[in-house]
């Protein structure tokens, strides 16, 4: 009666393609989103009452690229270039400013107590609403775009640099003290490397913020070549919903690229040695 059964063989599907098993849930969500999108597009009154059958309000996914003629593509391309450049240069400056501020504050308690409340103030201020004032002062230049982006993006890096620098244990400091290390040597070989996981955690947040700053801040940049934000409003004013959605998707794509780039850099520089 009590026969011993061989252990059940593990199910083949999970064994054969773990990649597929991992991708299935997010793909299912994507499917739901697309289904919902279609549902919305076809449930809106008169959405397709146009002469050429294109959507007047929300284009269904397969119509997204209908209005994308050469001129539209070139407008989107130049806007992408503007926003991408703003986000990228802005993020680099935010890293520079954030790390410098974090290092400076970690060196001096009085600097920290002098700056910290104001950094919090900048952080909790929706800086984007200050954009028109910044534009008024600096002019609607690339500089103004950068200022907005940096103001929005630097804080997580500054605070994480500070906390990362402070997290270095006393024993490690003692090792460097006993070796007679200079402050510079200690910073480069001990504190910054030790803080780098925290800095990267901040960087991941800042990268997203830089893209938001560059794209949303662009709504307020009303002169010169439009970035993605302003182009979206232009397409909206012309009710060109296809190009509008495409532009929004590109903004999302830039955010994704930044996220992936930061993750890749982290995997290269931090992940091999860091175990949280």
């Amino acid at each position: 009666m009590n026969e011993i059964r061989p252990p059940a063989t593990p199910r083949n599907s999970t064994h054969r393609s773990p990649r597929l098993a991992r991708l299935a849930p997010p793909l299912a969500v994507l499917g739901l989103v697309i289904a919902g999108w279609y549902g919305l597009a076809y449930s809106l009154d008169n959405n397709f009452a146009s002469a050429d059958g294109s959507a007047l309000i929300i284009p269904p996914p397969h119509q997204l690229f209908v209005g994308l003629n050469a001129a539209t593509v070139s407008r989107i391309a130049s806007a992408t270039w503007v926003s991408l450049g703003t986000a990228a240069v802005g993020l680099l400056l935010a890293i520079l400013v954030g790390v410098l501020l974090g290092v400076a504050m970690s060196f001096s308690r009085s600097l920290e107590s002098a700056f910290w409340p104001w950094l919090i103030a900048v952080q909790v201020t929706p800086v984007i609403v200050l954009t028109p004032i910044i534009v008024r002062v600096v002019g609607a230049s690339f500089t103004a775009r950068l200022i907005v982006t940096v103001l929005i993006a630097f804080f997580p890096i500054a605070s994480n640099t500070l906390f990362g620098m402070r997290s270095v244990g006393r024993a490690l400091h003692d090792v460097f003290t006993l070796a007679g290390a200079s402050r510079w040597h200690r910073l480069i070989h001990l504190q910054l490397p030790a803080a780098s996981p925290a800095i990267f955690a901040g960087l991941r947040v800042s990268a997203g913020l830089a893209v938001i700053g560059a794209v949303v801040g662009d709504f307020f940049f009303t002169r010169g070549t439009p970035g993605l934000g302003r182009l979206i409003t232009f397409f909206f004013q012309d009710t060109r919903s296809g190009p509008m959605f495409v532009t929004a998707l590109i903004a999302a794509l830039i955010g994704l690229c930044f996220f992936v780039a930061v993750a890749a850099l982290r995997r290269l520089l931090v992940s091999p040695w860091h175990r949280p």
């Binding site: 244990g169 024993a171 490690l172 003692d174 090792v175 006993l178 007679g180 070989h189 001990l190 490397p193 030790a194 780098s196 040695w273 860091h274 175990r275």
Partner: peptide
């Protein structure tokens, strides 16, 4: 100078 071995290994993780 002196060598110092601490309670924890105090290694540079990187």
């Amino acid at each position: 100078g002196v060598g110092f071995v601490f309670q924890e290994p105090a290694l540079l993780a990187w």
